[in-house]
Simulated assay, not measured.
Amino acid sequence: MKYAGVCLLIAGVLFAVTSRWFGGSPESVHAAGTHYTVTVMAADRVEVRVTSGKADTVTLAAAMPGMGHALPPVGTVQPDPGRFVATQDVFTMDGVWEVTITVSGDQGEELITVSLLV
């Protein structure tokens, strides 16, 4: 019985790793500020969808507190209304990151911070 638990644990880890390597869906996180609501997807290029409020620009700043890393802000391009894609890589390694999303638009500027597992 003890080995069954270990086998299930190993199977779960293998599933998580292989689904990421072989095209599993990226993690998405929803967060709301006072004026804007966003959905953040940690794919090859981080994507932010502003689902509430009209945004003109979005900037991303990533930090990995557990490792003491903080990276300079990354700009985005807007291929569709409300959809913003990072212009460069946001993350330098796998792990837990805190991403501060600066949204500017018709409701002014707002910072929304989310945690992502990359």
Score class of each variant (00 low, 15 high):
H35S: 12
F84W: 04
G12H: 09
A31S: 00
V40L: 08
R49Y: 01
C7T: 15
A31Y: 04
G75R: 14
P79I: 03
G66V: 14
V48D: 03
A11I: 13
H30G: 07
V6T: 14
M67R: 14
Y36F: 08
T57V: 02
V46K: 00
I10M: 06
G75F: 01
V29N: 08
P81A: 10
P79N: 02
S19E: 11
I10L: 15
R20S: 04
M67H: 10
T37V: 14
D56V: 09
E27S: 06
P65T: 01
R83A: 10
M41H: 12
V85H: 00
D94V: 06
S28E: 11
Y36H: 01
A32I: 02
E47H: 04
V40D: 04
T34M: 11
A31V: 03
T18P: 00
Q78L: 06
V77I: 13
R45M: 13
L60D: 04
F22H: 12
P65V: 05
H30K: 13
V96W: 09
F84P: 12
S19M: 08
G23S: 10
A70E: 07
M67W: 05
V46P: 00
A55N: 01
A43W: 01
L14I: 13
L9Q: 06
A43M: 00
G24S: 03
V50L: 03
L14Q: 14
E98D: 06
P72D: 09
P79W: 11
Q88V: 01
A55G: 10
A16E: 10
K54G: 08
G23I: 12
G82T: 05
S28G: 05
G66K: 10
A43H: 13
L8M: 14
A55F: 02
F84G: 08
E27Q: 12
V6L: 04
L71S: 07
V50F: 06
Y36I: 11
V6H: 06
G75E: 15
E47M: 02
P26W: 09
D94M: 15
M93K: 05
A61R: 06
F15W: 14
V96N: 11
V74W: 09
F84K: 07
I10N: 01
H35Y: 07
D94T: 12
H35N: 15
G75Y: 02
T18E: 12
A63C: 00
T37I: 01
H69T: 05
V29K: 08
L8Y: 07
T18C: 12
V58S: 10
T92G: 12
F91R: 09
L71G: 02
D44T: 09
P26T: 02
G75C: 00
S28I: 03
A61P: 01
A11H: 08
C7A: 15
F22G: 04
V29S: 05
A62N: 00
Y36V: 00
G24C: 10
V29E: 08
D56C: 07
T59F: 06
V17D: 11
T51C: 02
L14K: 06
M93F: 11
V74F: 09
A16L: 14
A42L: 05
F84D: 02
D94P: 01
K54T: 10
F91S: 03
D89L: 11
T76D: 00
F84V: 04
A70C: 09
V77Y: 07
R83E: 12
G95H: 12
T76K: 00
T39G: 06
F15P: 04
G24F: 09
V96T: 09
A55L: 01
